[in-house]
Amino acid sequence: MTSHHDMAQAIVSAHQATLGLTPQVRTAPAFSSEAPVYRAAKQACLDLGFIEIDAECLAHAWQAMTLRTGHFSPADWPADPQDFGMRAWPRPDAFASCPKQLGLYAVLPDAAWVVRMARAGVPTVQLRFKSGDAQAVEREVRAAVEAVKGTDARLFINDHWQAAIAAGAYGVHLGQEDLGAADLSAIRAAGLRLGLSSHGYAEMLRADRLSPSYIAMGAVFPTTLKQMATAPQGTGRLAAYARLMRDYPLVAIGGIDGGKLPEVLASGVGSIAVVRALVAAAQPEAAVAKLKAEMQAWMATQEAIQMS
């Protein structure tokens, strides 16, 4: 009988090139089951550099996949929602929907940037305004909502859900750390879309339980804009995440610029979020045009390939 150590090594060998990262800390795994496949997958995922909570999610999913299919295959990677305990769609408690392809997604520091990028043709914009002054927040959110009127831009408000409801924004974006403080029922009842950040399997599953409008995944590449709890995930993991979360509109974020667009889009996401690629550009409007053209060219190429 193959030992769980041999099974773990087979998993690592099959996926190291696409999914492996250097483990931050090597520790003896803590197992919550005696099932050999679970134990093998838990060890393998830790060796591949997944953090503990994500390795645990994956190990249980691998066990479920093996029971469902009737065989263990180290070359497979769990990507079926039912193996992760996710509910089927449609869901009566889901937030309002948004397009599967959100396109270029600009994360912007204030309303002035929102109006500038909306007028430049960015299809999805997010106001990420940082201030402890409630009145300043309300003014900025109202100004951003007014800024996108007359354009085709969809506006999400980062964090400030109450101001977003009051101003009639298109949607709200929340980080995992903000979920406990937000009234999700009020956001849903107001008809606003909800986007949620995620940085790995455990956070994706937590987001999925809330049935948001979209899920953002990252950081894909190194970024200096925000201190991340997890290492940059890379496009191999992004593709694995996208396969599991295929029922959602998906947004890739973190260190993405024009040169990286093709490999990010190839992962299966329908939107790419950018920050510095626009706000730090010498000519932001020209940068918008270039990024949109690159995205459209990539999609046209894929359509041509599918039709050939």
Results as ranks from 00 to 15, higher is better:
residue 2 T to R: 14
residue 8 A to I: 09
residue 23 P to K: 07
residue 24 Q to A: 14
residue 28 A to P: 02
residue 39 R to S: 14
residue 44 A to E: 06
residue 49 G to M: 03
residue 50 F to E: 07
residue 54 D to E: 07
residue 59 A to T: 11
residue 61 A to I: 06
residue 61 A to G: 10
residue 65 M to W: 08
residue 65 M to L: 12
residue 67 L to C: 05
residue 68 R to F: 00
residue 71 H to G: 07
residue 83 D to E: 13
residue 84 F to W: 11
residue 94 A to C: 11
residue 94 A to N: 09
residue 95 F to G: 06
residue 98 C to G: 13
residue 111 A to M: 01
residue 112 A to D: 15
residue 113 W to H: 15
residue 115 V to D: 15
residue 116 R to S: 15
residue 125 V to A: 12
residue 127 L to F: 13
residue 130 K to W: 05
residue 135 Q to D: 12
residue 136 A to N: 01
residue 138 E to P: 02
residue 139 R to N: 11
residue 154 R to I: 15
residue 156 F to W: 02
residue 157 I to L: 04
residue 160 H to E: 04
residue 169 A to C: 11
residue 171 G to I: 05
residue 172 V to P: 08
residue 172 V to G: 09
residue 173 H to R: 06
residue 176 Q to W: 05
residue 178 D to A: 13
residue 179 L to H: 09
residue 181 A to F: 00
residue 182 A to L: 05
residue 185 S to E: 15
residue 193 R to T: 13
residue 200 G to V: 06
residue 200 G to N: 05
residue 203 E to N: 03
residue 205 L to M: 13
residue 210 L to N: 02
residue 217 M to H: 12
residue 229 A to R: 10
residue 230 T to Y: 03
residue 232 P to E: 01
residue 243 R to M: 09
residue 247 D to S: 13
residue 251 V to E: 08
residue 253 I to G: 02
residue 260 K to M: 08
residue 265 L to T: 07
residue 269 V to N: 14
residue 269 V to S: 11
residue 273 A to Q: 08
residue 279 V to A: 01
residue 281 A to N: 08
residue 286 A to Q: 12
residue 288 V to E: 05
residue 291 L to F: 07
residue 294 E to C: 03
residue 294 E to N: 04
residue 295 M to K: 02
residue 300 A to P: 10
residue 307 M to I: 07
